[in-house]
Simulated assay, not measured.
Amino acid sequence: MNVTIIDVAKKAGVSPSTVSRVISGSTRISAATTEKVKAVMEELGYHPNLMAKNLVSRTTMTIGLLLPRNADEAFLDLFFSEVTRGILSQATRAGYDLLLKTGKSEQEELEAVTRLAKGRRVDGIILLQSRRDDTVIRYLLQEKFPFVLIGRDPERPDILSVDNDNVQGAYDVTRHLLELGHRRIGYAGGPLELVVSSDRYEGYRRALAESGIEPDPRWVFGADLIRQDSTAAVRALMEQPERPTALVVMDDLLAFSLLGSLSELGWSVPGDMAVFGFNDNPMSPVSTPPVSSVDIGVYQLGLQAAGLLLKSIKNEEIAERRVIVPHRLLPRESSQPPGS
Rank of each mutant, 00 (worst) to 15 (best):
A170Y: 10
R156G: 11
D158C: 02
D224L: 10
V148L: 09
A232E: 15
E210S: 06
P157R: 11
P146S: 10
F147V: 08
R205I: 08
E193C: 11
P244M: 06
D216Y: 05
D229E: 11
L225F: 07
L180W: 14
L254G: 00
D158G: 03
E210R: 01
L253N: 14
I213T: 08
A223D: 02
R200V: 01
L160V: 11
P157G: 10
L178I: 08
V148D: 13
S211P: 00
A223N: 04
R243W: 12
G189M: 02
I213E: 07
D165M: 06
L247A: 01
V167D: 03
V167Y: 02
D172K: 14
D229G: 05
V234H: 10
V220W: 08
R206M: 02
S197I: 06
V173K: 00
G186C: 13
A255P: 03
T231V: 15
S161R: 13
L237N: 04
D199I: 00
Q168S: 00
S198Y: 09
D172I: 06
A209Y: 01
S198A: 14
D224Q: 05
A255I: 03
A209Q: 05
E202W: 01
P215L: 15
L192E: 14
E202H: 05
G151W: 13
V162L: 08
T231D: 11
I213S: 07
L225E: 13
A223Q: 04
R183S: 09
E242W: 09
P154S: 05
E155H: 10
R218S: 15
M250N: 04
L237Y: 10
L149H: 11
A232G: 07
M238Q: 12
I185H: 02
L254H: 00
Q228R: 15
T245H: 04
I226P: 09
R184Y: 10
L194C: 01
D251W: 01
F147P: 09
G190Q: 00
V234P: 06
P157H: 04
E193Y: 12
T245I: 05
I213G: 04
D172N: 11
V248Q: 04
G169S: 15
R200Q: 07
Y187T: 02
L208D: 02
S197P: 02
Q168L: 00
S198Q: 14
D199H: 00
G203C: 04
D216R: 14
